[in-house]
Amino acid sequence: MFRSKSSRETMRQKAKRTEKERLERIKNKEKNRKRPNTVAFRMSDEEKRLFEDRVTMSGLLKQDFIIQSLLFSDVQFRGSNIAIKRIEERLDAIEMNIKSVLKKEELDSVLMEELATIIELTQRKSL
């Protein structure tokens, strides 16, 4: 059975509207998430097996295990010219921010955390 042109147009408009509504629902859902950002990386089969074993032994969810591993474990600093240059650039930006903050007497907590991380890394291995 063939549909009239107006009927097809109405169906297209409805499909467009429902797709738009679906995307809007997804967007709103992302806004309300506690952790809206995604981080992805690749592993070899052996690395994945070891990772899965550690997650199982920890009793944590994979997400929580990864976050704790990344944020609360020791990191070895391997100073290369590129890494040192990036740190110097970031320290320059932090210095400018601190100078402007001294005028306002207010310091960004994210900036302080970044500065603490840089100091911790550089104290482990001198540049």
Rank of each mutant, 00 (worst) to 15 (best):
L60Q: 13
A116N: 08
K5Q: 13
A15M: 11
R78K: 06
L111D: 11
V75C: 06
L107P: 10
N97T: 00
K62L: 02
R22A: 14
S109F: 12
E52G: 02
S6I: 11
L70S: 04
V110Q: 15
E88N: 03
I26L: 15
E95T: 05
R49E: 05
V39H: 11
K5M: 09
E88R: 00
L23H: 01
M112S: 11
L23M: 11
A15S: 13
S58N: 13
V75E: 05
V55Q: 11
E9D: 15
V110I: 10
T56V: 07
M96I: 02
Q123D: 09
E21P: 02
K62W: 02
V55T: 10
R17F: 10
N97C: 03
S109M: 08
E88T: 00
R86K: 07
E105R: 13
N37I: 09
K31H: 14
V101R: 12
D108Y: 14
I82A: 08
A93C: 00
R33S: 15
K62R: 11
A83F: 03
R54N: 05
F72K: 09
F41D: 05
I67S: 08
N97D: 10
T18R: 07
K34A: 13
E47H: 05
D74W: 03
K5T: 12
E88W: 00
D108L: 07
K14G: 08
E95R: 14
K34E: 15
E46Q: 05
I98S: 06
T117Y: 06
S44C: 08
I84Y: 00
R33D: 04
I84C: 00
A93W: 00
D108I: 09
S44I: 04
T10F: 15
D92V: 07
Q123W: 08
L115F: 04
S7T: 08
I87Y: 00
P36D: 08
S126Y: 12
S73E: 04
T117M: 12
F51P: 00
R35S: 13
I94L: 07
M1Y: 12
R22V: 11
K27M: 07
E9S: 15
V110R: 14
L102V: 05
E105T: 07
K27H: 04
E114P: 04
E113W: 06
Q13D: 05
R8Q: 13
M11Q: 15
S109K: 13
R90H: 06
I82L: 12
E24Y: 05
I82P: 00
Q76C: 05
R54V: 01
L127W: 03
R78F: 09
I82Q: 11
E106L: 14
V110W: 12
E52M: 04
A40C: 08
M11R: 15
I26Q: 11
L102D: 12
V39A: 06
M57Q: 13
M11L: 15
E46F: 05
F65G: 07
L107D: 02
